[in-house]
Design a protein around this nucleic acid. Structure first.
Length: 322
DNA sequence: AACTAGTACAACCGCGGAGCC
DNA sequence: AGGCTCCGCGGTTGTACTAGT
């Protein structure tokens, strides 16, 4: 963990007529700032971020406070390295959703979009590329050349426009059909990764999310997902819960206690998070109204294998855009 | 020990959408 | 309708840390 940017601590935005704005700090957050923001958030809950920044006594813009809270201070964050299961899920979801980090993060409880994005850019992308260069060479400069695309267990030489054609149902401008790809040839993006999946070529052209219209927003629980996951949900298959983005609204201040002095590293029964130089322990931080509690699933403990099994074996995908 | 290159990740920036007046 | 503010997202940057020489 990095130490606070002591130089950045004194960095300020250029002054203007507004003295408050003149003192706005940038750069890394100090432990003191973190503490202020945590205390304020736990006491007052989420509101207008610019007000939060002001009322919490922080010389930061609201945007910076929001980012710090969402990406680092939120007590429901799961810190630490990504598990192999999480890695698999990220790869899989990325093959479906592309760079929609917030949507990927929504399906990885305790992880933030920023964290996943960084992990992807710094680790997974390179790893996938390494794996693929040994088995699959593409000529990115010439998209007219047919490439090998994996669909299920099949490797199919295709032109880029074929891929586009597959994603478009020519019979209707509003209807998108994946039947031809999926029916009979089980679509499995993992196979693409495991066999001949080319990150720079096929993935970008084969970005499933571009093929799927955004289906209705539903009742909010899986509100912002795309068709492929909607289908999964509708079939009653196990999906991980969306990360509770509005947990602040549910938290009960009276149940909160921050133990700033505690160095107890045992987090098994508590929600813990690391600060730059401190470890905070939050006991009963919130009434995690986990939608999955009824299924005895806790954060990070959902049925990953079941999910992966289900998501990669859709029997039929035929989406109708509204 | 000193230097360099590579890596990881926190934070910033710019943009677009939504809501309000 | 147009302007403003706020929020959220994805891309990018900056820098502490680490490994290699």
């Amino acid at each position: 963990m990095r130490k606070p940017d002591l130089m950045g601590r004194d960095r300020v935005l250029p002054s203007n007529s507004n003295m408050n704005k003149a003192k706005l700090r940038k750069g890394l957050w100090s432990p003191e700032e973190d503490e202020k923001l945590i205390k304020y958030m736990l006491t007052n809950g989420q509101g207008c971020w610019s007000d939060i920044a002001r009322n919490a006594g922080l010389q930061r813009c609201g945007k910076s406070c929001r980012l710090r809270w969402i990406n680092y201070l939120r007590p429901d964050l799961k810190r630490g390295a990504f598990s192999p299961q999480e890695e698999e899920l990220i790869i899989h979801l990325h093959s479906i959703l592309g760079n929609r980090w917030s949507q990927i993060a929504a399906r990885l409880p305790g992880r933030t979009d920023n964290e996943i994005k960084n992990f992807w850019n710094s680790t997974l992308k390179k790893r996938l590329k390494m794996n693929n260069t040994s088995t699959f060479s593409t000529n990115d400069s010439d998209s007219s050349e047919p490439r090998d695309y994996a669909i299920g267990n099949m490797i199919m030489p295709m032109h880029d426009h074929d891929i586009m054609t597959l994603c478009m149902d020519s019979s209707s401008s509003s209807s998108i059909s994946m039947q031809g790809m999926v029916t009979g040839n089980q679509f499995d993006s993992f196979s693409m990764l495991n066999s001949r999946y080319d990150v720079t070529g096929a993935a970008s052209l084969f970005d499933m999310s571009t093929c799927f219209p955004q289906v209705g927003m539903g009742d909010g629980f899986y509100g912002d997902h795309y068709g492929i996951l909607e289908a999964t949900n509708k079939t009653g298959l196990a999906l991980p819960p969306l990360e509770s983005r509005s947990f602040e609204e549910k938290n009960t201040v009276s149940n909160c206690r921050i133990d700033m002095e505690s160095n107890n590293n045992n987090c098994s029964d508590n929600i813990c998070f690391n600060n730059t130089d401190q470890r905070f322990k939050v006991e009963n931080m919130l009434e995690l109204e986990n939608h999955w509690q009824g299924e005895n699933l806790r954060m990070g403990e959902w049925d990953f294998e079941g999910f992966m099994e289900n998501i990669s074996s859709f029997p039929l995908l035929d989406f109708q855009a509204e």
